[in-house]
């Protein structure tokens, strides 16, 4: 997520270059965490205070305490919707990873294929693909399939693009070394190209995961059957603000959990290869 650069900025502006390597558990190191957390709690408190003291705001807002109450009370009712959204997103994303990585690998490997498809892929990137949601309803109905496939459709491309970019951006010096060592192509691919591509791959996975969630939500808007997006739409229409925000909070949680899983996978992969991948250590 693009928020993270701010963390890096915070660390570098605290003045110590080596702090970018390790967060020191001193006041200087804790500041980037403690201070935003403090302000977050202040925001929450302020929100609660505003809703309590300005009844007019109740027409659009609900206080954090009300949201929490609804969450607890209606949780059993919300579970099937949580499951629906989570499953659609996860399955769509998983399939997108398979398709995206395969396509990205093919694009990196076959130069002519890349050449033939390049302008089309650029166009594909730019056009508002979200508009195709109704098409998927025509094709696959209003059930989980159409949402899942729509999520797949939206998320496979960032993954493919990132995979292709990562695989084709192996440092030429490393490839030259492999050529000088008479290494067979597949070994060069597995032992050198793939590890170098891993940071790009995970960036693509994070992007793809976000798109999968967006696809699921928009699919839920359009199919109007189930899922947390549907609950948001339904609750908002019924002016039930607390439920609306509760469903939103759950959506965030689902998104965060899946994103967290991707980050975890990244950390595990880095550990296995032995971090770091940053080309800072390349020369």
């Amino acid at each position: 997520m693009t928020v993270l650069p701010f963390i890096e900025q915070q660390i570098t502006t605290s003045g110590d270059a080596s702090a970018t390597r390790r967060l020191r558990w001193s006041m200087a190191g804790l500041r980037p965490i403690v201070l935003p957390l403090l302000f977050f709690l202040l925001w929450l408190g302020g929100w609660e205070w505003v809703v309590d003291h300005f009844p007019a705001s109740r027409s659009v807002l609900a206080s954090p305490s009300e949201i929490a109450a609804v969450l607890v009370k209606s949780f059993p009712l919300l579970v099937p919707h949580i499951v629906s959204t989570a499953c659609d997103t996860l399955l769509g994303f998983a399939l997108a990873v398979v398709v995206g990585v395969a396509l990205g690998g093919a694009l990196a490997q076959f130069h002519r294929l890349n050449q033939a498809l390049f302008p089309h892929l650029v166009l594909f990137q730019i056009v508002p693909k979200i508009a195709l949601a109704p098409l998927f309803v025509i094709w696959l109905g209003v059930g989980t399939e159409s949402r899942l496939v729509f999520a797949l459709f939206l998320s496979f491309f960032p993954i493919a693009a990132a995979t292709a970019a990562g695989l084709s951006s192996t440092r030429p010096e490393a490839l030259r070394l492999c050529a000088a060592l008479n290494a067979p192509r597949w070994r060069t691919f597995l032992c050198v190209r793939v590890p170098f591509a891993i940071p790009a791959l995970f960036a693509g996975l994070k992007m793809g995961m976000t798109m999968a969630l967006i696809g699921t939500i928009v699919g839920e808007f359009v199919t109007g059957q189930e899922g947390l997006g549907y609950v948001v739409m339904f609750a908002a229409a019924g002016a039930d603000n607390a439920l609306t925000f509760a469903a939103l909070a759950l959506l965030c949680a689902v998104g965060l959990l899946i994103y967290g899983a991707v980050v975890l996978a990244e950390v595990v992969t880095q550990r296995w290869y032995g971090a770091p991948f940053v080309t800072e250590g390349f020369n």
């Binding site: 997520m1 976000t210 969630l213 967006i214 808007f221």
Partner: peptide, 9 residues
């Protein structure tokens, strides 16, 4: 962090 599209309704 919020999937902003969900804010549409």
């Amino acid at each position: 962090l919020i999937p902003k599209v969900a804010l549409a309704p």
